[in-house]
Each structure stands twice: as C-alpha cells, then as structure tokens.
Amino acid sequence: MKKTFLFAGVILALYLAGIAFIPPYIEAQRNPVTQSSPYSVSLEARQLYGRLDFIADLHCDALLWGRDLTQRGSRGHVDFPRMRDSNVALEMFTIVSKSPSGQNMKKNSSDTFDNITPLTIAKGEGPWNWFSLIKRTLSQSEALSDFVEKEEGNAIFIRSKKELEQLIEARMSNKEVIGAMLGIEGGHAIEGSLENLEKVYQAGVRMIGPTHFFDNEFGGSAHGENNEGLTEFGKSAIRRMNELGIFIDLAHSSPAIVDDVLDLSTKPVIISHTGVRGVLDSQRNLSDEQIRKIADKGGIIGIAFFDGAVGSPELPNIIASIKYVRDLVGVRYVALGSDYDGSVSVPFDITGLPLIVEGLMESGFTEEEIRSVMGENVKRFLLENLE
C-alpha cells in the first residue's frame, strides 16, 4: 500500500511539475519575437504615435497558453500591461480549440492528431476540457472574463456598442483603461450545434471564423481538403450569427466560403488576420477580387504580422500589404490583425507597434490615414455594426 501511495505521489508531483514548466516552454518555442524590446523609432514617429487616440488589433491567441494576462509576461506577444505600454485601446482575443498535427498552409485533415489536446492536459485543465471543443472554448471565454474582472474597472469586456462607447469615454480621461473582445478561430468549436452557438454568444463571443486549418461542419478551409463552400449547417449558422450580432471572420476560409458568406450575410464581415496575394501569393491570402467584394460589403481587413501571411522581411511587407489594400479599395477598409501569440514568429511584440507608424510615415501615409489604419477604422466599424 505504501508503494502504491508513493507511486501515486511521484506521478502527481511529475504532473504538477509539468503544468509549471511544459506550457511556458511550448509557448516560448511557438511564439518567438525576432527583435526584442525596447524598440526605437524616430522622434517624429514617436510623437505621431503618441497622438493616436485609439489603437486596435483584430487578432490575438494569447488565451490559448494559460498565462495570466493581467501580469506582464516575459514570453509571448500580448498581455494587459504591454497593451498599456503601447497605448492599445482594444484587442480581439481569439480562441483556438483545435489544431491538426503537421499544421501547414497547403492541406490539412480534420482526422489528424489534435495538438491542443496535450496542451490542454499539460496546462492542468480539468478532464472535461480534454476531449470537448466547446468546453475548451467556454473555458477560455471564462478566463478572459476573469482577467477583466481582476482589473477592477481598468478593463472592459466589449460585447455591445454600449460597452465600446464606455471604453471610448473612459479613455478620454484615463488611458490605462483597455478593452477586450472575444472571437473564435474555427467554427468546429461549436461542434455542429446551433445551441452551442447560443452558448458562446452568452459567454461574450462576438466574432467567429467558419473554418481554421481544416474542413469542418461549416464547410471548407483554405488549408483543408475539399475546398467547398458553406454546408447547410454552415448557412444556418451564418444566418443565426447575423441575428445574434456575431461578426463573421473569413480568415482561413476557402474561396468558396468567402463567396458564399458575402452572398448570404446581411452584415459586413471581418478578415481578422491575413495577407494579400498582391504582396505574397499564398492560398491563405486575399485576391484583389476578394478584397473588392469585402470592401463593397463594408467589411474590414486586418493585416497579419508573420511571414506566412506577408512574406519576409516582415515589417516592410506589413507596410506594403496595408498600402496595397489602401491603393486598391481605400484606407477605410484596412486595419491591424497581428495574429499575436498564434504559434507564429513575429518581428516585434505589441510594444513594437510604433514601428508600424514609422513604416507608414516612410511610405507616405498621411497622419489621418495612419490614424485610420492603427485603430480608427476598427472603432468606426464596431460603432456602426455592434449591437
């Protein structure tokens, strides 16, 4: 009996040690920053950055890794203190619930081993989350709510136009107040259930991408196997998302889903993190025709920060991608969509956003255009479309 207790104690100790060390190690390996802070820009760029009233980012996966986002991190790309350091008003925190083994830009099967399952176990989450995508999703939703609550009024969970207006008003007198929105990367998270769609709405989710890296109940992924459009369930879910006021995020969707959603949706869409084929010809990026259709529908396009979306070197190609959208359809349709903490290498963390401003200045963007790109477009889009 003593040996049994001893063995159980050793197993428990090893598991607890794993919780303490394995997730941070994995996160550090998966989310490197190629240039460490602090970041240096010209005096003119620093001054212009300081005049920006509203800075926003449309995509960040920091909830996946189990960090306390109210604490300053020494790894990864985003947390609340670093948002304040960089005067970021609003971050869209997105939930990743499943990732296929061997994930790549070309072709992935939904039947391969799921990378998120071992991470979920290693983080010490309860067994109820180990094999349930919806429970993983609701757990990350609850984590964001808890982080906001810990801030005791210095953070606002944005679920409505009214709460966004509260954030804008609060920041007029206190730039320490930040806003957090909640999205889902991949509709597989709702497990083919409209009832689960209602659950995530109640949990605060206001943006959902139909697909991520593999095909699911909604239809085809840009990186999947069938390249199909919306299924009948997908069409029902899109209609219900419109009714509820959940934005549709077309990043990672097959071209057929992009067309189907633009035809079906009664609301403008978001592409939360992408590149453009005019800068990097990749199947995960938007064609000129897609960019025009999205703009015609009043949508907004977030430019990502990693080489798989914009090419290398990243910073000049981020600027080139923003400029490409501006020149094609107008500056009001382009925004920042970093994909921070999304298992990507980036050239700078969130405190490096002044580098974007400097790059835009050097490319001839006016101050008004820079304000639009850095956050005013997102603010306007949300004020017009949040309910």
Rank of each mutant, 00 (worst) to 15 (best):
Ser99Asn: 06
Thr112Lys: 04
Ala89Met: 08
Leu63Thr: 12
Val33Ser: 10
Asn31Lys: 12
Asp114Ile: 01
Val96Met: 11
Arg46Glu: 15
Leu43Lys: 14
Ser110Thr: 00
Ala62Tyr: 13
Thr117His: 00
Gly124Leu: 11
Pro127Lys: 11
Ser36Asn: 12
Lys123Pro: 06
His59Phe: 10
Thr117Glu: 04
Phe93His: 15
Arg75Val: 14
Ser101Asp: 12
Pro127Val: 13
Thr34Lys: 13
Ser101Phe: 15
Asn129Leu: 09
Pro118Met: 01
Phe54Trp: 09
Phe54Ala: 09
Thr112Asp: 09
Ile95Arg: 03
Ser99Val: 06
Trp128His: 11
Ser109Pro: 01
Arg67Gly: 03
Trp128Met: 10
Tyr39Glu: 12
Phe93Ser: 05
Tyr49Ile: 06
Thr112Gly: 05
Gly50Leu: 07
Gln71Trp: 02
Phe54Met: 10
Ser101Gln: 15
Ala122Tyr: 08
Phe80Lys: 03
Glu91Asn: 13
Arg51Thr: 15
Pro118Ile: 00
Lys123Val: 05
Tyr39Ala: 13
Leu119Glu: 02
Ala122Val: 06
Ser42Leu: 10
Ser110Met: 03
Arg30Asn: 10
Arg46Asp: 15
Ser109Arg: 01
Gly73Thr: 10
Tyr49Gly: 08
Thr112Arg: 04
Asp114Phe: 01
Val41Lys: 08
Met83Ser: 04
Glu125Gly: 00
Pro127Asn: 06
Glu125Asp: 14
Arg30Ser: 12
Ser97Leu: 02
Cys60Gly: 14
Ser74Asp: 13
Leu119Tyr: 03
Ala45Asn: 08
Gly126Ser: 15
Asp68Trp: 07
Asn129Phe: 00
Leu69Ser: 09
Leu58Asn: 14
Gly66Ile: 01
Asn108Thr: 01
Arg67Glu: 11
Asp111Met: 07
Leu69Gln: 09
Thr34Asn: 11
Phe80Cys: 01
Asp111Glu: 14
Lys107Phe: 02
Thr34Glu: 15
Pro127Arg: 12
Tyr49Asn: 14
Ser97Pro: 02
Phe113Met: 07
Arg51Ile: 03
Ser110Lys: 04
Phe93Leu: 15
Arg82Ile: 02
Ser37Arg: 15
Gly66Trp: 00
Asp79His: 05
Pro38Ala: 11
Asn108Lys: 01
Gly124Val: 13
Trp128Phe: 11
Asn104Trp: 00
Gly50Ile: 05
Thr94Phe: 05
Ala45Trp: 00
Lys106Trp: 08
Gly124Cys: 10
Ser101Glu: 15
Ser40Glu: 14
Asn104Ala: 02
Ser40Thr: 15
Leu43Arg: 12
Cys60Met: 10
Ala45Phe: 05
Phe80Gln: 04
Thr94Leu: 09
Val33Leu: 14
Ser109Val: 01
Val96Gln: 05
Pro127Ala: 14
Pro81Tyr: 06
Ser97Tyr: 04
Ser74Met: 05
Pro100Asp: 01
Lys123Leu: 15
Thr117Ile: 13
Ala122Asn: 08
Leu64Trp: 12
Asn115Gly: 00
Ser99His: 07
